[in-house]
Amino acid sequence: MLKWIAFIILLGLLFSCSSEKKTTIPKASVPDFISGVDLSYVNQVEDHGGKFRVKGIEADPFRIFQEHGASTVRVRLWHNPEWTKKLNGGKTYSDLADVIKTIRRARQAGMMVNLDFHYSDDWSDPAKQAVPKAWEGLALPLLKDSVYNYTLAVLNQLKLLGLVPEMVQVGNENNNGIMFPLGKVSNDDWSSFASLLNSGIDAVRDFSKTSSIKPRIIIHVAQLQNAFHWLKNLTAAGVNDFDIIGLSHYFKWSEVTSMQAISDTISAIRNKYGKEVMVVETAYPWTALNADLYPNVISGADAFEQYPASPEGQQRYLCDLVDAIRKGGGKGVMYWEPAWISSRLRDQWGQGSSWDNCTLFDFEGNVLPAMNCLGH
């Protein structure tokens, strides 16, 4: 009964996508090492005037990344991000309709997809994992059913459109749990978090039984130094049916700084847990300047001395990082929001981009040298 109630809640969210026609696009081939880019913001950037160029000539950003070696597009999915309408002239972003558009563009460019379920209406990260408004106040059993049915419904909708992702992230940067407060780790109790995560995992596995594309499951923790503690507790609580350990690695917040230490840590995680390891978020600045009045999250002053905040420094850092991940036996790397260039885009904190100095495009939208590291 609980599962049917949860399913009814989903119908309104998915109805707007039901009239989409199935896309007939060849499946992307799976490389041994995955070079990915998170392009969740691209539709919004373009709608607000952002342009992408190769040597001054405007081009489709998805094609640009594919031609420079990217094999995969990562895209975030928020449950019901109504708040984005107020900032974008009534248009919603990072909902299912927007995600479908992104996946279709990725497929047309010949790339695979990593679908990142945030299980929230807004940003999820180690500090905040807000339960979707539609699920507020639900007891744990019904919340678990909601997670299961929502995950399954989204994947089934994508299947109808011929847009099944090759990878699915069940949660985003879940260091301290998921869907607070019920799924938050408290007093070292990981059981509720684990049961909610397993509901999403079960949905992906059940979907795979009837799908020719069987998505590989990624679970995600931020920063390498947190991985062992997190995995120890999560696996002990019963989360074991996943394929890839996804890591965020941002040099500014990492305690694992040298390239050798990165290789050693990835190798140790692989050996201990017998799973593939992938860096699913990373970035590095190419300049200390700012394209707009929106303060940047990472400044040029944060850069390492051996990798200055310059186009050349960014290129050396990213190519060295790719080599370090490969050396440690990692499965791949995904660059976070390399196309979040400055535009009229507005979010909760400003207009433009707080990431314009960490993109793989300069302030005129031209490709930077570091993009060549994607095929490195």
Rank of each mutant, 00 (worst) to 15 (best):
G56C: 06
A59K: 15
P61C: 09
F62M: 13
F62N: 10
R63K: 15
Q66D: 10
G69H: 14
S71E: 11
V73S: 07
V73R: 07
L77C: 07
E82H: 15
W83I: 09
T84S: 12
K85M: 02
K85T: 00
L87F: 14
N88L: 08
K91M: 04
A97M: 01
A97P: 00
D98M: 00
I100L: 04
T102P: 01
R104K: 15
R105L: 14
A109K: 08
G110R: 12
M111K: 12
M112E: 09
D116K: 06
Y119T: 02
Y119R: 11
S120Y: 11
S124P: 00
D125Y: 12
A127E: 03
Q129T: 05
V131H: 05
P132Y: 08
P132V: 06
W135N: 05
G137H: 05
A139H: 11
L140Q: 11
L142A: 08
S146G: 09
T151K: 06
L152G: 05
K159L: 07
V164M: 10
P165K: 03
E166H: 15
Q169F: 04
G171E: 09
I178V: 11
M179V: 13
F180K: 10
G183F: 09
G183L: 11
K184A: 05
D188C: 01
D189K: 08
S191L: 09
S195A: 10
L197A: 12
L197G: 03
G200Q: 06
